[in-house]
Design a protein around this nucleic acid. Structure first.
Lengths: 131, 131
DNA sequence: ATACTACTTGGAGTTAACTCCAAGTCAATA
DNA sequence: TATTGACTTGGAGTTAACTCCAAGTAGTAT
């Protein structure tokens, strides 16, 4: 699979994909004799993982560390588990923040909808209410 | 309330708070005769809102736009509602990504826990499994 | 064989959101 | 009054994560 195809599949740019490989967010990718990247299923799984983790803000640094441990073999199982648990803590914390922001947005929007519908501003200052 | 106290309450730095005011993420803050910031309840509500929105990745640009509309008065109710709805779409999309990353992390961690517990690597390559 | 296109590399540039800094001011204490 | 310490400003610097670029090469269509 070419770099272009992989990019379309995950909606990222070739530059990003090459960057991920360069810094070690994914292991080195399979190449043709000519040196052109030819992604295997395995390579693509790594890309999928990286894209997913990055989309939730897991730092590039952490992904690099994980790949490094993975390549060192079975002796790093516990270390990898710990790294993932650490990542999970961060992701969960962010998730909670997003949820509370959603709650706030929903509240504010409902107040605005109400004002628009009734044509009356039913609050002194939307911003100064607890929500 | 002093800048220091507000910072402690929201766990941010004075520099960040001054930056928010400077670029317009929050309206201009109340001052003492000497020119020192003295946050009112109203000011603090704005800070609370900004911190919450920023923690969910709502861009500074959008918050600035919102404050600007707010200061223009009641004629901008619909525009403000639209802005908030736009923000909500983004936040929800991010929330979904975080959730699917959590699912992936939970799956991977459980595989690792299993391997650690049994002492047996029950998969060829943790990364190459669908999850 | 000759274009043409898509790929390759290392390195420089960009962006958003802070974060730090130097120089100056003010209120309270010694 | 002199010093201290926290505050003020505008502007420069930093950081993470890309994103772009110039120069070169490989595979494909004419």
């Amino acid at each position: 699979m070419t770099i272009k195809e992989v990019c379309e599949q995950f909606d990222i740019t070739p530059d990003t994909l090459r960057y991920y490989e360069r810094v070690g967010v994914i292991p080195e990718v399979n190449r043709t004799k000519g040196g052109i990247r030819d992604y295997t299923e395995e390579d693509i799984k790594w890309v999928e993982n990286a894209v997913c983790m990055r989309s939730a803000g897991v730092p590039v640094e952490m992904l690099i560390e994980y790949v490094k441990l993975f390549q060192e073999g079975d002796g790093t199982i516990k270390a990898r588990r710990d790294l993932l648990v650490e990542a999970r803590v961060e992701v969960q914390a962010q998730l909670d923040k997003y949820q509370s922001t959603m709650d706030r947005l929903n509240y504010k929007i409902s107040r605005y909808e109400e004002a628009i519908k009734t044509g009356v501003l039913t609050w002194d200052n939307c911003e100064s209410k607890k929500n």
